[in-house]
Amino acid sequence: MEIIQVVGIGIIATFLVLVIKEQKPVFAFLLATFTGIVIFIALAGKIAEVIRVLEHLATQARVNNLFFETILKIVGIAYIAEFGAQVTRDAGQGSIASKIELAGKLLIMVMAIPIITVIIETVIQILPA
């Protein structure tokens, strides 16, 4: 029952943050970040399992490896960007948070560029000159 552990750590951290915020807001922020990271690392193993299963299926079905890697990279970018943005937003820096999100979106689009290029080239080739 890992969910209980996660919820427990979350609640405890919340109380501690509440207590410390009175004295030292900086430490409260650090504690919140730390808790977030711990929870995420705990979940990373589960996500990895899911992804391994998907990868296995993909190799069995001979899905192009490029596709799969692109997809995974996109998800990874989304996760990291999201994490950074939330931490910054917690610290009260909304503008930096939105910049981080912007960077995440842009990088995802960059990942898609090769695919878009291939599709457009093919369409142009199919169309009579």
Partner: peptide, 22 residues
């Protein structure tokens, strides 16, 4: 699996492209 909704549209677009490729 995605963490939040702001990224969803982008990821969906890319996934759509990949499926079109396939």
């Amino acid at each position: 699996l995605l963490p939040n909704h702001s990224m969803e549209r982008y990821v969906k677009l890319v996934m759509g492209l990949i499926i079109i490729m396939a």
